[in-house]
Simulated assay, not measured.
Amino acid sequence: MKLASFHDGSRDGQLAVVSRDLGSACYASGIAATLQQALQDWNFIAPQLQTLSDALNSGHARHAFAFDPALCLAPLPRAFQWALASCAPEESAPPGHAPDGAAPALFLAAGDTLRGPCGPLPALPGALDFEPQLAAIVADAPRAATADQGQDAIRLLALACPLRLREAPWADSCPATAFAPVALTPDELGPAWQAGVASLTLQASLNGRKTGLLDTRRAWPLGQLAAACARTRALTAGSLLGAGPTPAASGHSSIQQRRASGLQAAWLQAGDALHLQARAKDGAPLFGAIDLRLS
Rank of each mutant, 00 (worst) to 15 (best):
32 A>S: 11
58 S>F: 09
26 C>M: 08
61 A>Q: 06
25 A>W: 08
45 I>G: 05
57 N>K: 10
6 F>Q: 05
50 Q>I: 11
16 A>M: 03
25 A>Q: 14
22 L>Y: 03
25 A>C: 14
50 Q>E: 14
19 S>W: 01
59 G>N: 10
61 A>K: 08
12 D>W: 02
30 G>W: 11
16 A>K: 03
40 Q>S: 11
36 Q>R: 15
34 T>I: 00
60 H>M: 12
27 Y>E: 07
21 D>K: 10
12 D>G: 06
54 D>P: 04
61 A>M: 09
53 S>C: 12
12 D>C: 02
32 A>H: 00
49 L>D: 03
46 A>F: 08
19 S>T: 08
53 S>P: 12
46 A>G: 05
21 D>G: 06
55 A>N: 15
6 F>P: 03
6 F>E: 08
52 L>P: 08
10 S>P: 09
41 D>S: 13
41 D>N: 12
10 S>D: 01
18 V>Q: 04
53 S>M: 09
12 D>A: 09
56 L>F: 07
11 R>P: 12
47 P>W: 15
44 F>G: 00
38 A>E: 01
30 G>E: 12
14 Q>C: 07
47 P>Q: 13
9 G>A: 06
8 D>N: 09
43 N>Y: 13
8 D>Y: 03
18 V>R: 01
59 G>R: 08
31 I>V: 12
57 N>H: 14
45 I>R: 08
11 R>E: 10
55 A>L: 15
17 V>L: 04
45 I>H: 02
49 L>G: 07
36 Q>H: 15
13 G>Y: 02
9 G>S: 09
35 L>K: 00
20 R>L: 01
24 S>Y: 13
27 Y>R: 07
24 S>D: 12
46 A>R: 05
26 C>S: 14
35 L>Y: 06
8 D>E: 09
17 V>I: 09
25 A>K: 06
28 A>K: 00
33 A>N: 12
20 R>S: 09
34 T>G: 11
55 A>C: 06
31 I>F: 12
27 Y>T: 05
8 D>G: 07
26 C>Q: 11
43 N>F: 04
46 A>T: 01
53 S>H: 14
57 N>Y: 10
35 L>E: 09
38 A>H: 03
8 D>S: 01
40 Q>V: 07
61 A>N: 12
23 G>V: 04
41 D>M: 06
27 Y>W: 15
18 V>K: 06
6 F>G: 02
45 I>F: 07
35 L>F: 07
16 A>Y: 08
16 A>I: 05
53 S>T: 14
51 T>P: 00
7 H>A: 15
45 I>V: 15
15 L>C: 05
36 Q>N: 15
8 D>K: 02
36 Q>G: 13
57 N>W: 10
35 L>S: 11
28 A>M: 10
11 R>G: 12
43 N>P: 05
54 D>R: 15
51 T>L: 14
13 G>A: 02
35 L>V: 07
36 Q>K: 14
28 A>V: 09
22 L>A: 00
38 A>R: 08
29 S>K: 06
15 L>R: 03
24 S>P: 01
59 G>V: 12
23 G>W: 06
22 L>F: 07
61 A>V: 10
23 G>E: 14
29 S>G: 08
25 A>F: 06
30 G>H: 11
60 H>G: 03
50 Q>R: 14
6 F>I: 14
14 Q>H: 12
18 V>A: 05
28 A>D: 02
29 S>E: 07
44 F>C: 07
